[in-house]
């Protein structure tokens, strides 16, 4: 269904994320502006570190939504070829769009975006 056009300058807000201390170690978020090789290098480093420190539940998660889905999947393929077991989960996340106006209050509207989660099992 096509969404109605709302006036105002659009500010896109990211989806909600719960604060987790462990997220820093075992999760990587891929943006549409993330460079593929850069992402692969960063993930490889983190995977190595996770492998060395963690004793159980050795899973590294790569997440992405919308435009970055193909990139996340190709990262998954890269690690598959490196002989890691890789699992793919699809899903959708809710995001907020803010339409800012000059004088009056801005309008917030919800939108659903497809997302993908690649789990690299160590």
């Amino acid at each position: 269904m096509k969404r109605e056009r709302i006036d105002g300058t659009l500010i896109k807000h990211p989806p909600m994320r719960k604060y987790k201390v462990t997220e820093e170690k075992n999760t990587f978020f891929v943006k549409s502006s993330t460079l593929y090789v850069s992402a692969v290098k960063q993930i490889s480093k983190k995977v190595e570190k996770l492998n060395a420190t963690q004793t159980k539940n050795k899973v590294f998660i790569v997440k992405g939504m919308g435009k970055s889905i193909p990139k996340v999947l190709s990262i998954g393929v890269y690690f598959q070829l490196k002989n890691y077991r890789v699992e793919v989960f699809t899903g959708s996340v809710k995001v907020l769009d803010e339409f800012e106006k000059e004088d009056d209050d801005s309008i917030l509207s919800k939108r659903t975006v497809s997302s993908v989660e690649v789990r690299i099992i160590l």
């Binding site: 500010i11 807000h13 990211p14 989806p15 909600m16 994320r17 719960k18 604060y19 987790k20 997220e23 907020l96 803010e98 801005s106 917030l108």
Partner: peptide, 10 residues
């Protein structure tokens, strides 16, 4: 309070 602070809140 359970949220991670990013630019989610206007």
């Amino acid at each position: 309070c359970s949220f991670r602070d990013n630019s989610m809140i206007p």
